[in-house]
Computed example of a mutant assay.
Amino acid sequence: MRMNKLAGGQLEVSALCLGSMLWGTINTEAEGHAQIDQSLDHGINFIDTAEMYPVAPVRAETCGRSEQVIGSWIAKTGRRGDVVIATKVSGNNEGWKRDGKGYDGAIIREAVEDSLTKLNTDYIDIYQTHWPVRGSYAFRQNWRFDPSGQNKREVEAHMRDVLGAMADLVREGKVRHFALSNESAWGTAEWLRIAREMGAPEVISVQNEYSFLFRLADTDLAELCMNEGVRVLSYSPLAAGLLTGKYQNNVVPKGSRLDRTPGLGGRATPRAFDAVAAYHDVARKHGLDPVHMALAFAVSRPFMGSTIFGASSKEQLTRILDGKDLTLSDEVLDDIDRAHRAHPMPF
Rank of each mutant, 00 (worst) to 15 (best):
R2L: 15
M3V: 13
L6G: 04
A7Y: 04
L11C: 05
V13D: 02
A15L: 07
C17E: 09
L18H: 10
E29R: 12
E29T: 14
G32L: 10
A34K: 14
Q38A: 15
Q38G: 08
L40M: 12
I47L: 15
D48H: 01
Y53T: 02
P57E: 07
R59K: 13
A60Y: 07
S66I: 10
I70N: 10
I74D: 10
I74F: 15
G81S: 15
I85F: 10
K88T: 09
K88H: 11
S90H: 12
S90P: 12
N92K: 14
E94F: 14
W96M: 09
G100I: 09
G102N: 09
D104Q: 05
D104R: 10
I107K: 10
S115C: 04
K118A: 03
N120T: 12
T121N: 01
I124C: 08
D125G: 03
Y137W: 12
R140P: 05
W143E: 14
R144C: 12
P147T: 01
N151A: 09
M159N: 11
R160K: 11
M166W: 03
E183Q: 12
W186P: 07
W186Y: 13
T188C: 13
W191N: 14
A195Q: 07
R196S: 08
E202I: 06
E209V: 10
F212M: 13
L216R: 15
D220H: 13
C225I: 03
V232Q: 06
A239V: 12
A240D: 12
G241Y: 06
Q248S: 13
S256P: 03
G263T: 01
L264R: 04
A268K: 09
T269G: 02
T269D: 04
D274S: 13
A275L: 10
A278H: 05
Y279E: 04
D281K: 14
A283V: 03
K285L: 09
H286D: 03
L288I: 04
H292M: 03
M293K: 00
A294M: 02
A294P: 01
A296M: 00
F297P: 00
M304E: 01
M304H: 00
M304S: 00
G305P: 02
I308E: 00
G310C: 01
A311C: 02
S313Y: 00
Q316L: 01
L317K: 03
L317I: 04
I320E: 03
I320S: 07
L321I: 02
D322C: 09
D325M: 00
L326R: 01
D334W: 03
D334A: 14
P346L: 07
